[in-house]
Design a protein around this nucleic acid. Structure first.
Lengths: 160, 160
DNA sequence: CCTGAAATTGAAAGTCGATTTCATTTGGCC
DNA sequence: GGCCAAATGAAATCGACTTTCAATTTCAGG
């Protein structure tokens, strides 16, 4: 790794070493905060910005890429070269991957048809995962008439 | 419209009237700033938060939905019921729609296979539109050896 | 082993769009 | 008309980044 970075003009530091290691241990869909937490367990002195910068660096050297499902938090995936989409649970915010090799062909055709130069494809299915549905059922069950947990039936100005 | 809102417990106001009208005139992919600009041309006294709240309201009553391509700005689309994906130009940030009726079936199957309750599908093709590619070619052409416009070949710490 | 330029780090400050607060002003049903 | 919840506008706040800056560290070369 040190060697790999050196060839790209970057130096290795203890912090970087730790951050890279932690990133690959955590696997996919890592958030800056998540990685920061993890890294801090080993070294309380590492700053948030250092973690952030190194996550960006990992992307820059091509080992990861940002994933943005539109919930305001950027996640980082290891680059795999196997095109995949994401199942995004709107409840627990977890991501699950699924293969989309058969779909990229269709999308490539669509792009072509619009004289658009495609760089990447993004496919997401938003909804509720098995676990959260189960929890929700239980919760609703428990509170018979209940304090509504669900759909935003709030009145005017009850935006949000 | 007034009637439609009333049944949902909302009142009509001159500002709301204006904002709703402007939203439907602008068409798809409207941003808060964009709508604010438009609305302000008619009434300089309307505040940004009023525009924002009404855009949210339009979503709440089911007439629009948020579109988030991960560039930090939320756009609003009129709800159509015709499933569509977006071609997103990374240069000019424009959105173009394309039909995905044939793909939702595949995605529904994927979700099922993961015991995931799908609520919505999101399909995006990120890349460069025809126009921007043309402009880019011209620009590159003009500056022979040039000041590089392209790929981030910046050195260390040149994150961004 | 030294050196010095360049890269890196950590804390703090700054961005920027989204969202909320709050005092005040309506809208619409009696 | 009068009431009261809903709506508005300005300003403050939030939160996830992103940058700044002074101090520290790395490592290519002597």
């Amino acid at each position: 790794m040190r060697e790999f970075l050196r060839t790209k003009g970057f130096k290795m530091t203890p912090q970087r070493e730790l951050i890279f290691r932690a990133f690959f241990e955590l696997g996919d869909h890592v958030t800056v905060d998540g990685l920061y937490e993890k890294v801090r367990q080993q070294d309380r002195s590492i700053g948030y910005s250092t973690v952030w910068r190194n996550l960006k660096l990992i992307c820059k050297v091509g080992l990861a890429e940002e994933v943005n499902v539109g919930d305001g938090v950027t996640r980082y995936d290891r680059v795999t070269h196997i095109p995949h989409g994401h199942l995004y649970c709107q409840d627990c915010r977890s991501l699950t991957e699924f293969n989309i090799e058969e779909l990229v062909g269709v999308l490539a055709t669509v792009a072509e048809g619009h004289d658009f130069h495609a760089e990447s494809f993004k496919i997401e299915i938003h909804g509720y995962c098995q676990d959260c549905r189960a929890k929700r059922r239980k919760r609703t069950m428990a509170s018979a008439v209940s304090t509504n947990n669900e759909p935003d039936q709030s009145g005017p100005d009850g935006l949000r």
